[in-house]
Amino acid sequence: MRPISYLRAEGADGIDSALRAVTDDPGSDFLAGGTTEVDLLRQHVLGPRRLVDINRLPLAGIEELPDGGLRIGALTRMSDVASSPVVQERFPMVSRALVLGASAQLRHMASMGGNMMQKVRCGYYRDAESPCNKREPGAGCAALTGVSRTHAVLGTSEHCIATHPSDVAVPLAALDARIRTRTLDGEHTYAFDDFFLEPGDTPHREHPLTHGELITAIEVPALPMARRSLYLKVRDRESYEFALVSVAAAIEVRDGKVGGVRIALGGVGTRPWRARRAEDALVGGPATTKSFDLAARAELAAARTTPMNAFKPELARRTLVRALETLTRDGSRS
């Protein structure tokens, strides 16, 4: 870890002073839960000269929105969101994704805003030395020919195939959540889809944020059918492991036909992967295993694999089918 200075933002004008401190200094970064950031500082992947500690800012808590949605403060800890009765009731897939992510200790530390900003787990990015376009634009991508079992198959480019690691971002993508931010200029709102950038030619750009822009909240709009949603996560280990494949899904079936459906995939995309092709294929059609399967195939047709992760599209297809079967069979949560 490089030498760093520390500034704690707190008090009445804490948010403004934090914004100013980071905006005015390219060498300053915000520090929230630290679960990714401290790790990457120690690895020499990140190298700010100063950290602005925002943990004392009044950005924690869950508010109910008039439409039945929720506004989750950026500094609300993952564990507090997971155990919130209103989240469990209205958006069980959010609660479930949180509980299945990381460990109890990490969930106590990590903030929801930080979760949106978390970095990829690609070993070549994290070792601070291998060629990595995300860390050092133009350096090349060691993962393309390297050990890539956990890497992405959707949204990849010839410059980066790192998987987006978040669990909770997967149901949030399915729910059309919004990211609220602040800069010195005022407040901004991003649609979830716009907030996570595909690597393309610029894998180092992961979000549309400007330096010094601070996430203040995540808004989750109401979605009645999400009360019977699920998050299904497949991994080698039974716990404490990132997803090889995960599915967040909610479905509404009327008279055997799909009235509405929301699906997002984790573990397979370079960003939390909203499965719009699958959704489009399903809506209005029969709620049968066969149509689930066709929808999954439609979504995964664009998958590009390496020899080591060639199993992922098939695993994703099966997981998606299983998720929808489970929801339509008895509506129970996985």
Binding site: G34, L51, D53, A104, Q105, H108, M109
Partner: peptide
């Protein structure tokens, strides 16, 4: 009172 990981926590915080 909450269990956390001391390795990813900066002491000064």
């Amino acid at each position: 009172g909450r269990r956390v990981l001391a390795c990813l926590t900066l002491a000064i915080t």
